[in-house]
Simulated scan of single mutants.
Amino acid sequence: MSQLTSADRIAYLDTAATTPIGRDYKRRAVDALDLRPGHRVMDVGCGPGTDLRRLADVVRADGLVVGVDRDPGMLAEAGRRVAGRPGVELRLGDVHALPLDDDSMDRARIDRVLMHVADPAAALVEVRRVLRPAGVLVVTEPDWDTLAVADEDVATSRRFARFVAGRVRNPTIGRELVRLSGRAGLRVRSVEAIAVVFDDFDTADRILGLRRNSARAVAAGELTDADVQPWLRRLTAGPLLASVTLYLVTAGA
Rank of each mutant, 00 (worst) to 15 (best):
F201A: 03
G87E: 01
L223Y: 04
P37Q: 09
L180A: 01
G38H: 09
V30L: 08
A253G: 13
D205L: 03
L98N: 07
L35R: 12
V59N: 10
A134S: 14
L235F: 03
V191F: 02
M74P: 06
G221N: 11
D225Q: 13
R85L: 12
V58D: 05
D24F: 07
V244R: 07
E192H: 10
V138A: 07
R159K: 06
A11V: 01
P20L: 04
A165I: 10
R80S: 06
R70W: 00
A253F: 04
R9W: 01
T245F: 00
R233I: 02
D103H: 14
A148C: 12
L248Y: 00
R81F: 07
G252W: 01
R70G: 02
R107F: 05
D69E: 03
P20I: 08
R216M: 12
A148Y: 07
V82Q: 02
V249K: 10
L35I: 09
V130N: 04
G67H: 11
A217N: 01
D101P: 09
F160A: 11
V117K: 05
V136W: 04
G166V: 05
M115W: 00
M74E: 06
A184D: 12
L13M: 11
V117N: 03
L55S: 03
G221I: 12
P120G: 14
D31K: 08
A217H: 02
G252I: 01
D62S: 14
A242N: 10
E152V: 08
T140V: 13
D57Y: 04
V66T: 09
D202M: 05
A134Y: 06
